[in-house]
Amino acid sequence: MNLRAIQTIYLFEMDRMRRTVAQSVISPVISTALYFIVFGSAIGSRIQQIDGVDYGAFIVPGLMMMTLLMQSISNAAFGIYFPRFVGTVYEILSAPISAMEIVVGYVGAAATKSLIIGLIILATAHFFVAIEIRHPVWMLAFLVLTCVTFSLLGFIIGIWADNFEKLQLVPLLVVTPLAFLGGSFYSIKMLPEFWQTVTLFNPVVYLISGFRWSFYGQADVGIAVSLSMTFAFLVVCLGVVWWIFKTGYRMKP
């Protein structure tokens, strides 16, 4: 195994993020703070508790998840799209490294970055609302699992996209709606019955629900179901990545 190559890719990517720290860290923090001000304070003060949790605190896990999804996808997608776009990917492909090592380097860096952003958001939220974390280990586990899974999805998008539009299309047209409709700002129990059923086809529901459970011990769906669904999604993403490298899809003509 070429550990040094993994480390090289990982550190190179982390360094790229350090160079763009303003847009990669500060902007999610600001937008999260705005959400807290608008939803948490302005609107939240007129909403009673949900499942015994203050509304401001209730939205914290959903908000974190939403940002994590977007960040993981866009970091990882851009990380691999950029070398493809400028052509420097030739060096990665001609190096004595396996597909797995390439993925670990790129996805690992993207996941690390979103994890850091997630924790920063948690710290930011702490200034606005009182947060309790009932199951910190599970919380961390969900956090890491989500970062890795959606960084993998981002990696896939970064390989599939052959222009900048496509690169932004998926996060914008698919992930944002799924995250909004996935119960970031409400409990899906508040929806009419029909929509509750529809919502169960939204994978993000399971993430947010499981994550919220790790905070407040309350969940829309069972924790076991949440975990299995997230794992299942991880396995699907791994399968797609494996297929990409096996066939050389969009990487090797």
Binding site: I9, D15, V86, A95
Partner: peptide
Amino acid sequence: LVPQELTTDAFVTVWQTISFSRGLFGK
């Protein structure tokens, strides 16, 4: 391999890019 097209990173330094190349090959 020195490719036909001038494909380089833009924002990193010469030293960083060659160190990257060496690391990628596991040296």
